[in-house]
């Protein structure tokens, strides 16, 4: 007897992606470049975050034709983004057979208050988080994988670092706390009590946690890995750079050999220009993607 869509099957795929790099792609051709460079999965979307940021307007789920072209072009898993709370976009992606759905703050939120009830789907979901409270709420809604949000489309790693350090710090506190402090901690974090118990049992977040939002160089990827994430998302950082194929391969190598400085040095040579990048202080508050969907 086969049981599909169990939580173990959903979180299991994320376990297989660990130590790897997931790359944003907007065409079948880019998807092939990503696969050839050693990506463990691709994220199909209409525009990379840097373009969404620059062009504005409402960012939605990608055209199904485009998603299917990308699915046909590669054998690695294909993820695709839905707007926060847009459960019909999620139903559409599930019917297309994508391998993972990213309920993402990069797109314009569809619901001001609520996320998708992810338990109702066979396809697993990944969600962004800035801190442990957000991560635990998304897990309680049924997400099977987490990524720190960072600030997408900036090529600036500072927010990814901020979120990963904060999450690590909060996890350490949950693990070290005496039992009687746990309920108040749950209240303060806005995290379900049961999720905190799960963190104590596992000694870490009970699912895979990737880093995302601003990673642009091999050293950025290795930095996030050394800070303890399980793998890397690169959005605009690859196809907004001068030489995407070489940079993609270099980021993959740096993610695997993240503790080997000599290796990171050698793959970082002659990569050409990285994406130009944006200082976070220059972004108006209402344009900060990370504040969406808390």
């Amino acid at each position: 007897m086969e049981k599909k869509g169990t939580y173990r099957v959903k979180s299991g795929l994320a376990e297989m992606l660990k130590g790897g790099v997931i790359m944003d792609v907007t065409t079948a051709e880019q998807a092939k470049i990503a696969e050839t460079a050693g990506a463990v999965a691709v994220m199909a979307l209409e525009r990379v975050p840097a373009d969404i940021r620059a062009q504005g307007g409402v960012a939605r789920m990608a055209d199904p034709t485009k998603v299917q072209e990308i699915m046909a072009a590669v054998t690695i898993p294909v993820m695709a983004k839905v707007r926060i709370g847009h459960f019909v976009e999620a139903q559409v992606l599930q019917s297309l057979g994508v391998d993972y759905i990213d309920e993402s703050e990069v797109l314009t939120p569809a619901d001001p208050d609520y996320h998708v009830n992810k338990w109702g789907f066979t396809i697993p979901f990944i969600c962004g988080a800035r801190n442990l409270g957000e991560a635990c709420r998304r897990l309680a809604e049924g997400a099977a994988m987490i990524r720190t949000k960072g600030e997408p489309g900036t090529g600036n790693v500072i927010e990814a670092v901020r979120h990963m350090r904060l999450m690590n710090e909060q996890i350490r506190e949950v693990i070290a706390a005496p039992q009687e402090e746990l309920m108040t901690m749950a209240k303060d974090l806005g995290a379900p009590y049961e999720m905190l118990l799960a963190i104590r049992e596992h000694g870490r977040l009970p699912v895979v946690n990737f880093a995302a939002g601003g990673i642009a160089t091999p050293a950025d990827a290795a930095l996030m890995m050394q800070l303890g994430c399980d793998g890397i998302f690169v959005g605009s950082g690859i196809f907004k750079a001068e030489d995407p194929a070489t940079r993609a391969r270099a980021i993959v190598e740096a993610t695997t050999h993240f503790e080997d400085a000599a290796k990171i040095a050698s793959v970082s040579e002659g990569l050409g220009e990285a994406m130009s990048g944006i200082a976070i202080e220059t972004i108006p508050e209402h344009e900060m993607m990370q504040n969406r969907g808390q």
Partner: peptide, 8 residues
Amino acid sequence: RQVDSFET
């Protein structure tokens, strides 16, 4: 694909 992944 993932939609057909299963345990048994």
